Simulated assay, not measured.
Amino acid sequence: MMYGVFFVLLWTFAHAAISLDLEEKFHQLHENYIQFKDKVLAELKEKDQQYKALTAKVNQLEIKLQQQESLTMATQSEPSAGHNSTKVLRQATVKVPTSCLDVYINGQTTNMATPLSGIYLIMGPKFVETVFCDFTKLITDPSSQRWIGYADIKSAPIYFYVQRNTPFTATNIPIPFQIERVNIGGAMDLPSGKFTAPRDGTYFFSFAGLAQFPNSTSKVHLKIALYFNGAYVGTSECAETNTAGHSSTLTLQLTLNLQKGVQVWLQIWAITAGVSLWDSRYNHTHFTGWILQEEIANSLL
């Protein structure tokens, strides 16, 4: 009986010793794992920092290379050697920016601090555009320039509003005007009735008038057309039958893309005898227009 008890006690102590040994080994393995993980994470962090530093250096070198190429080309194309070289290089390279790269190079060329990432204006194919430049990325990375929208910039204000105060019946000639309410930019010539576009761009025009009809049992009408460099682009007509000497209104609105120098005017296209584009001191005839959007790129040529 005593041998049995002794054996049980011996087995219990041995089992406890083995358990303690295994627990200690497990604890040691856990500690080793934590140390190894921390070491690996530290090395990865260090490598990541090194990668970012190298990427920034490559970015700077690439920008300087592109800048140097621009400066070299500008120097080679400069005919005079008697000017101050720094001034010549700046004049040759500082230009209206057409990209975030130009924004960066212009800043470097004029000895300004490296531009910060942000919103900038650049010259697009026709209009000034708003973009976001991310200078934390490689300047050649397409994602470093993000388009936002167009900037409504005009080199000069252009708008007019003119009127008549007498009847008009002549056909095949521009309708002249007598009263100038507004003519900013001087593009509207009242005696000739012609508007001459001073800039490339998109323009809006609006006309309103009053047709005076005589007593008639047959159909009478008045048709007004807007002409664009000699060809009509839109008409407005009012017609009546069995009239008793009353009047009728007519209107016309158009939006046109015009190049600099193109002329726009109104004229009577068709009119029945006895009918007139009526006007008096109350000014029933109105012609107005303005530039909606200028193709600003052409204004800088």
Rank of each mutant, 00 (worst) to 15 (best):
8 V>E: 13
9 L>D: 10
11 W>S: 14
13 F>E: 04
13 F>A: 09
14 A>M: 14
17 A>T: 06
18 I>D: 14
19 S>N: 10
30 H>I: 06
35 Q>N: 07
36 F>I: 03
49 Q>V: 02
57 K>V: 10
59 N>L: 06
67 Q>T: 02
68 Q>F: 11
68 Q>K: 02
68 Q>P: 00
72 T>H: 04
72 T>F: 03
76 Q>A: 14
77 S>E: 09
77 S>A: 09
79 P>N: 03
80 S>M: 02
84 N>A: 02
85 S>K: 13
85 S>W: 14
89 L>Q: 14
92 A>R: 07
96 V>K: 03
99 S>V: 00
108 Q>L: 10
116 L>H: 04
117 S>P: 01
121 L>F: 06
122 I>E: 04
122 I>A: 03
123 M>D: 08
127 F>Q: 13
132 F>S: 02
136 T>I: 01
139 I>F: 00
148 I>V: 08
149 G>V: 02
150 Y>F: 12
150 Y>L: 12
153 I>C: 09
162 V>F: 09
162 V>A: 04
167 P>G: 13
171 T>Y: 13
174 P>Q: 03
176 P>A: 10
180 E>L: 06
182 V>Y: 14
191 P>M: 03
193 G>D: 02
204 F>Q: 07
211 A>V: 09
212 Q>W: 03
214 P>A: 08
214 P>K: 05
215 N>L: 11
217 T>I: 09
217 T>G: 01
221 H>S: 14
226 L>A: 15
228 F>C: 08
234 G>Y: 09
237 E>M: 12
239 A>Q: 15
241 T>R: 14
241 T>F: 11
250 L>I: 09
253 Q>G: 12
256 L>G: 00
260 K>R: 11
260 K>G: 01
260 K>T: 07
260 K>E: 12
260 K>M: 06
262 V>P: 00
262 V>A: 11
264 V>D: 03
265 W>K: 07
266 L>V: 04
271 I>H: 05
280 S>K: 04
283 N>W: 07
288 T>V: 11
292 L>R: 00
294 E>V: 03
294 E>Y: 08
296 I>P: 09
299 S>Y: 13
299 S>R: 12
